[in-house]
């Protein structure tokens, strides 16, 4: 399955994280499905000019998340799925309700986003420090 990565070097997000996120996003949107073969790490290296260790780190992370599986000499295959699209989610209505009430109480969009990020951080503490550092 042809799949290209777009690495934004000035985004402040480490390159290997961008690779992981783009695969996750593709899974969420149904652009990648279980059984699809990802490009070889070597092909990604040549296309992105990233250090091979960076790409391997990303593929290992996807594997540890149960989203892909690497079979020697065959390639790396999508094995997992990620949650339904947001429109179908049963949680959407509840979240929309809370957001509407918060807005009526005077919260701006950024306030609400920051609040929700805080809640998520408490619930799902990140494994890596959640720091946006300027990329060199």
């Amino acid at each position: 399955m042809a799949f290209s990565f777009r690495i934004d070097r000035r985004s402040g997000v480490p390159s290997y994280v961008q690779i992981v996120q783009q695969v996750q996003q593709a899974l969420r949107l149904g652009l990648l499905q279980p059984g699809d073969r990802l490009p070889t790490a070597r092909a990604v290296v040549e296309a992105t000019a990233l250090n091979p260790n960076t790409v391997l780190k990303a593929y290992r992370e996807l594997e540890s998340q149960g989203l892909v599986e690497t079979r020697r000499r065959h390639g790396t295959f999508v094995t997992g799925t990620l949650g339904a699209s947001s429109a179908d989610s049963p949680w959407r209505a509840e979240l929309a309700d809370v957001a509407a009430r918060a807005r009526a109480a005077g919260l701006e969009r950024d306030d609400l986003a920051a609040l929700f990020t805080d809640v998520l951080e408490d619930l799902y503490p990140s494994k890596e420090p959640d720091v946006v550092s300027p990329q060199a």
Partner: peptide, 13 residues
């Protein structure tokens, strides 16, 4: 972009 990609692929190989 092209040559750095080739160089990195060579390192990978």
């Amino acid at each position: 972009q092209e040559l750095m990609g080739l160089l990195m692929a060579h390192v990978a190989d």
